[in-house]
Amino acid sequence: MTALSDSGLILPRYRRDPEGTHPPLDSPGYKSTGLRHPKQPLVLLPHKLTEITGPLLGPGRLGEFDNDLTRQHPEEPQGQRIIVHGRLLDGDGRPVPNSLVELWQANAGGRYKHVWDNWPCPVDPNFDGVGRAVTDSEGRYEFTTIKPGAYPWKNHDNAWRPAHIHFSVFGTAFTQRLVTQMYFPDDPLFSQDPIFNSVPDEKARQRMVSRFDLSRTVPEWALAFEFDIVLRGREATPFEDEEDE
């Protein structure tokens, strides 16, 4: 669980994810990676104080309706109301409590409320598509929102992004910082999406797909999807004072 660093301090270390868990930075199917991925090899960064600590951001960052995207305007947004809930966990199944979860998404028609988004689908004046929540003592979070629509993006011929919600989480250490996307089950657009398919490992890819959750639907009101987010766990065995990864 701990390792002696060369400073003599006892510090935890975080496990590196197996090959194939994350997309390669150079993913030619996603054209924007072309001029933006580093070409030099990454240099291994040992886990010292700056890496095993991280910002602990909690309730202070929340406004009143931050976790209910359907109540941020006087009128309700268009679209299918959904509950999105789940747990923020580390790789050992430990919940990450009191931790900030941020999300942003397109509206029911697949349009973002952003000046650069100009695809011809109307903006919804009652939907900003931005939410924040803080996990509870068991790592649980919950949002009420609208199911986002798919949208075209010109990456390749007739390219459509599967419906998705962008998620940002911190965990408790710099090593655990993660931005990901939540997808919906059985989306017919998966097969042609280079961003979803940039994740090499099939099991890892399925971690990004939420689960329809009948038990959490609200009768006469909203459907529900469950999305657990799993961050890196800590090394289980003690280490000598050397960088052996």
Partner: peptide
Amino acid sequence: MSTPSQTVGPYLGLG
């Protein structure tokens, strides 16, 4: 197994 990383996309400025 950890949840994979994905791009912030062009509209990160919203969230």
